[in-house]
Design a binder for these strands. Structure first.
Lengths: 351, 351
DNA sequence: CTGAAAGCGCTTACAG
DNA sequence: CTGAAAGCGCTTACAG
């Protein structure tokens, strides 16, 4: 391997001068600089980041622990992270954090690699208790005297933590979805969600209830279905039950797009026309919802931008050497083809 | 930061002994080992990988340059890479390689980081010429005398290269898709693909033609549609034209699932029933196809496994210090709801 | 504007 | 089984 020394020798200067040409070119005289530049190109020199990192105590890498890399929700998010990280001259080390053990061991690896900071996405461990524990350990790590690693949590669950957080507003997402359905005149609205106590599901459910109450609409337990797994098939099964109660809901607020797709599938198989007989809305804005037939209305998360902002927040914390206020990023309602005004009510309005 | 020295001091041994406890524990006497272990835990020591990498000339990182991180095709692939890499004790640095400039600069960054090896996925640069150029530069890099970086290309395009390659068989994928349709009795089969000269599209197209010829079926140019962009919307537009020729195809082989979803959308909007009036099959096996309504038949790539195998191949090359034969991984036909026997022909068979 | 020395935190190779 | 010395390839801090 070509080293700084080799370049220095060829250019007839001291190694430190080569270092300067690379890191602070303006401090070097034009003439020597071009001499060094030439030597660098001639030898195809590529600075060793490991050595540089060791000397500067800065690796120029940021770690990202994603709860599940294969989850399509995170594809855009990761792209946003990568793009923004490169703008700051940083590389991205990506890890999967499917369970506590995996997340923990990946965290340790990242610490060994001396990454400049770490971004964690919302975990989906088996139990919320383990997530609590993990976040607790992160806090300990973060507030340790001798070596602090800047950390940003994206949509942590549980949400209460002293660490810097970037988050979407689950409750607001729910309100937005419900308002859309209510404004279309729907009153018999079902809710399909997950039987988990993470805030994603709890808060969206709370928004569902509050929205009904605010309109003076009854809250009917037969209009609620909580399934066990965040999968289309499971959601479809749950939706069957929701769609077979006596007074069928005219609209369903699915807690996210995966579940919404399941509802759509169920409607198709039951021969229920969407949106004529049933309106459906989800949350997240993943591709799957966009390319369903009919395309699904969704409260869309700006995932790419969330990735970018996660990095920005992390970098700010890194340079400020202190924590910054948490960030809440707004979602946006995308009305597509899966919702329509309630029949009858809609006609009344026309006349 | 706690260093090896600190641990050594606390344990009352030489630094090298601590190093041994970490890297080759069996060479250290039980008694000293436990003394050192205790000191490590007490201080919360975490070995500095940068220093280790500098000394051993091995970073324990592998680089991955993905043509487009946000492409859902790669989500599972990356997960497979990450999982397998961790089994080998390696971290994954992920980069986006949307265009030549981006791929090039990311390559340079990875080289500076002294990654142990790099995996490149098929590029989708604007022009095939730039892809050729990039692969050419990789070859140069690979066969350079003084510092060779092991490299694996996943589905490169153009496909002819002297570098180690792991690939799916585009031509075979096409044959499998076509055989399925032909066996269902279809004779009027359309093909929707991209107007690009990458082998993904060329080879699948060739398989389309050859399959027809092998059955003595006519090749009709009005049954072919090549669109400009790999997008559902664009595919839908292309499909309209395909579905409005006088003698409408009874089946369509879409060159991949994205395009197949577009065909499905077009069929829906034209009121053409799938699969009763039109069978559709794609290639890739992405989620989007699986959760369409009706669900789309596809020649499925084992993407998770492809990721795993990419890492395995890379690791083998790294340790063998020489190139290994290229790997071709088989796809698998998943019949779902979007294909059915040609009416009439199907009934004949029954009687 | 340029350089000689020391050090970042590990491991390798050689002793004992 | 354990250790002292040298080195990996950079940069920091101090001189001049």
């Amino acid at each position: 391997m070509v080293t700084l020394k080799d370049v220095a020798k060829l250019a007839g200067v001291a190694p430190i001068t080569v270092s300067r040409v690379i890191n602070e070119p303006h401090t070097v005289k034009e003439q020597t600089r071009s001499k060094v530049q030439q030597a660098i190109e001639q030898l195809g020199y590529s600075p060793n980041q490991l050595a540089r990192g060791l000397a500067t105590n800065q690796s120029n890498m940021i770690g990202v622990v994603v709860s599940n890399i294969a989850n399509p929700y995170y594809a855009d998010y990761i792209l946003g992270i990568e793009t923004k990280a490169k703008q700051f001259g940083k590389s991205v080390v990506i890890c999967n954090g499917l369970d506590y053990v995996g997340a923990k061991s990946n965290l340790e690896l990242l610490l060994m690699q001396r990454v400049d900071g770490i971004i964690f996405t919302s975990f989906e461990f088996d139990s919320i208790r383990m997530q609590e524990r993990f976040i607790g350990e992160l806090e300990q790590l973060h507030f340790r005297k001798n070596h602090t690693v800047p950390v940003v949590l994206f949509n942590p669950s549980p949400a209460h933590t002293s660490l810097p957080v970037i988050q979407t507003d689950n409750y607001l997402d729910g309100l937005i979805a419900m308002r859309h359905l209510l404004e279309l005149g729907h009153a018999r609205i079902g809710h399909l969600s997950l039987n988990r106590d993470a805030s994603v599901w709890m808060d969206r459910f709370r928004a569902y209830k509050d929205s009904l109450l605010a309109r003076g609409l009854p809250f009917r337990s037969e209009y609620i279905r909580l399934i066990e797994k965040e999968r289309v098939k499971e959601a479809e099964q749950g939706a069957y039950q929701l769609l077979q109660v006596e007074e069928r809901p005219t609209a369903i607020f699915a807690a996210n797009d995966i579940l919404a797709v399941g509802v759509l599938q169920a409607a198709h198989r039951l021969g229920i026309r969407v949106p004529d007989e049933l309106s459906i809305i989800g949350v997240d804005g993943i591709e799957l919802a966009q390319y369903s037939y009919p395309s699904l209305a969704s409260v869309v998360h700006p995932r790419y931008s969330l990735g970018e902002q996660s990095v920005e927040l992390l970098v700010q914390i890194m340079s400020a050497k202190k924590d910054l206020p948490s960030l809440i990023v707004k979602s946006q309602l995308h009305v597509r083809e899966s919702t329509s005004a309630l029949r009858g009510r809609g006609e009344e309005e026309k006349s």
